[in-house]
Design a protein around this nucleic acid. Structure first.
Lengths: 329, 329
DNA sequence: GGCTCCTTTTGCATCGTGATACAATGGAGC
DNA sequence: GCTCCATTGTATCACGATGCAAAAGGAGCC
């Protein structure tokens, strides 16, 4: 705003050299009590704050970590970002957050800029198109829920087991026709785990597969899900690959006069705090967000410190029953 | 990771001088097509990215904006952060996000570091204790929903009108005892608007005030809200100052066998996309998040460019009726 | 006084980019 | 041989904090 106070100004005010001020700030080397006091008085009198950019220039480190998520405006990624941010802050890092918004152009722009040593490391939690920049990125990276490159570790929860248990929970409670809704982006290897588990469960139960895409546009998605009920009135259970979709299905079902869980059982996926607060009755598969964040940050630190890291970390999920499931027979 | 490629390396590889490489990158001065090609080839061959820190050092700008929120793990602030981030990105800024977590110590730490010109501007959306650092901050700042200092513009939505309409909606539908729950932090001037409107409405209706605090700890809050029903069975309507509390009250009421809205009407506040997806039936007061973000970013840009800014911007809210309200008589 | 030893302070180079001034080269055109 | 202009190179500085080597100050000792 007005004038930028720098080290030199403090030095002049205190009547010492720049080096001495620096040494007072960082408590290094020999210092007389008298100079320490003089300098500290000058610092607070001028309201001096060291220029972080200059420090970064010198250390060649920014102590900043980039996090790329689809958006923080959604419970899963919002809570994930919050968990990551808290842990990174405790380790002295600040977080640059990028909402890729399922827009490969925006994601690419973020990467190109962040690759100029603006961050000491990167956490990628998007489900976008395979972006070339990742392949040549010369930077510590950890991915969440998505494979990027052989030497980039992936942290994810056990999607296959989670989906298997969700399907089993429905079948154990007498479901005869189970539909599945998912964001069927072929580039997300982990979500494939959920799809595969659903298919395997249907095969084992001798039931047909009923798969509906979860479209990005809210209106289109609502219309698509409405079709499900229209086309397949025999469906008496739905496994949604995320809780927001489960809530939408719940609303649609209620509007059509279906009773939940008597006529239709519903189970979601993710189990964030937000969903559990807003819809405490929803059955869901809870992803271990805190643990995922913990491991992600630990892996990133190892990468930064050039320690060896495992190729992947898989964490267990928990099934949370709820009022959208019938009582067990 | 390995070796840091710098301008000089590109120059050597392309067989030209540093100045020429700089000219090519920034398209300045006379340049032959041949050199442009040579240089660009070298750039991509070496996978060169300009060192952002050095650029920042030179321009004395970081093109980074700090956003301090309580947490992005909550629908309101998560969606707000997402709206802000998208607009800032479009203007060439990256976002450093800080979750203050209602912890004044953490908030203060963030400020002290960010004040070292690590960001070109700051957006404050916390409801924490009054932190001294704000008073001397020599940096463009815009606050959301909270007064900080005379020369820091505040953007907020019309809390008084929103609360007034919420209360009126309940009374119009035959409510005879209306309780109010809120995060009663005395430092949040705007929330006071909601409280005042509730009090005025009760006074006008000749009804007693029933005010319950929304505690930070989830378990404690649940217990506190349960008291509301135990202590005041005559309550037939609740106005919650946020949707998460409204959902909690809805759950508690259902568990106690109260029918909503027949026995108990509920209206919340905020009306985020997340709540409207998860609980589409909840009546609420919708805050204009997108407009708030838009105005905030515009004000911050004005501040950065030293243009005059208004002291405050108040935006209108919208009442969204729902199945937690009775039909109008 | 001259010497060593320790404390305290200072000057200077460094990090990578961008800006600026100025020189130098080469080719075209007359 | 001259001018004109496009093109590239060289050189230097600024940005602000840091860390090293060197210098300055003071005490003690012979």
């Amino acid at each position: 705003m007005t004038k930028q106070i720098k080290l030199e100004d403090v030095a002049a005010k205190a009547g010492v050299s720049k080096a001495t001020v620096s040494r007072v700030i960082n408590r290094r080397g020999y210092l007389s009590q008298k100079t320490i006091m003089k300098v500290e008085e000058a610092i607070s009198a001028l309201n001096y704050h060291p220029n972080v950019i200059a420090q970064q220039m010198h250390t060649q480190r920014t102590k900043q970590i980039g996090i790329i998520v689809p958006t923080v405006g959604t419970p899963f990624f919002g809570e994930l970002a919050a968990e990551l941010e808290r842990r990174l802050f405790n380790k002295g890092y600040k977080v640059i957050i990028g909402g890729a918004e399922n827009d490969p152009v925006k994601e690419r722009k973020y990467l190109q800029q962040l690759l100029g040593r603006q961050v000491d490391g990167l956490i990628i939690a998007t489900h976008n198109a395979n972006i070339a920049e990742y392949q040549h990125a010369n930077l510590p990276i950890v991915a969440i829920d998505r494979y990027l490159r052989d030497d980039i570790p992936v942290v994810y929860s056990d999607n296959y087991a989670g989906a298997r248990e969700a399907c089993q929970a429905l079948l154990d409670r007498g479901a005869t026709r189970v539909a599945y809704t998912d964001n069927l982006n072929p580039l997300n290897a982990q979500d494939e785990g959920r799809l595969q588990a659903y298919r395997a469960a249907m095969r084992a139960a001798g039931m047909p597969e009923l798969i509906y895409p979860s479209l990005p546009d809210p209106e289109a998605k609502r219309a698509r899900f409405a079709q499900l009920f229209a086309e397949h009135p025999e469906v008496d259970a739905v496994f949604a690959s995320n809780d927001l979709d489960a809530a939408l299905l719940l609303d649609l079902a209620t509007q059509r006069g279906l009773r939940v869980p008597e006529d239709l059982q519903i189970i979601g996926y993710d189990g964030t705090k937000t969903t559990q607060t807003l819809l405490p009755g929803l059955a869901t598969v809870v992803q271990p967000l805190a643990a995922m964040a913990e491991r992600t940050v630990a892996l990133l630190e190892d990468k930064i410190n050039r320690k060896p890291t495992p190729a992947k970390v898989v964490l267990p999920v928990t099934l949370k029953p709820g009022r959208t499931l019938r009582q067990l027979a």
